[in-house]
Design a protein around this nucleic acid. Structure first.
Length: 149
DNA sequence: GCCAACGTTGGC
DNA sequence: GCCAACGTTGGC
């Protein structure tokens, strides 16, 4: 069992959308590192910190879990969609996604508060220039965060 | 809107 | 394989 932090822009899909829908295919990731995490490491039941990015109040907004292991991302084949990839074929898909299920919405744990915790100083989200949309979370970090939500 | 940081692309 | 140029991310 592993733990992850997954970023989403609330203007696109926020925690309230996840509460409403119950689960979501995490499609649209077009970064190889993030894809590899989903394809190679994420397992059903893994814990997920749902993070709001590129918004007025960035931070952790809820808890989710991996509901389905990785499978080919359908959006790469949609010629009209913004996630279309001409180099991907159904026989040789390039992009994969997992499904993520809501566990619970939490209070917002602001980025500034994360940054202020020495226990969380090693989180990838705090690294300079970090842009990776999916990052592993240490069990100790996960437990610390759970206790503060 | 700004800008630092990073990943990807493509010419060579 | 190198590396400059470009596009994107994301906090502020």
């Amino acid at each position: 069992m592993r733990y992850w932090l997954m970023k989403s822009e609330p203007s696109e899909f926020g925690i309230d959308d996840l509460v409403r829908d119950g689960f979501v295919p995490w499609f649209g990731v077009r970064n190889y590192q993030a894809r590899n995490f989903m394809r190679d490491q994420m397992k059903v039941g893994d814990g997920v910190l749902f993070y709001h990015s590129s918004c007025a109040e960035p931070g952790i907004a809820g808890i989710a879990e991996v509901a389905k292991a990785a499978y080919p991302d359908a959006s790469q084949f949609d010629t009209d969609g913004k996630y279309y990839d001409a180099k991907a074929t159904p026989d040789n898909p390039r992009w994969f996604n997992v499904d993520v299920r809501i566990v619970r919405k939490t209070r917002l744990l602001p980025l500034a508060e994360i940054r202020a915790c020495p226990e969380l100083a090693n989180m990838r989200i705090l690294a300079r220039g970090n842009r990776l949309s999916i990052t592993p979370v240490d069990p100790d970090e996960w437990n610390f965060i759970q206790a503060r939500l």
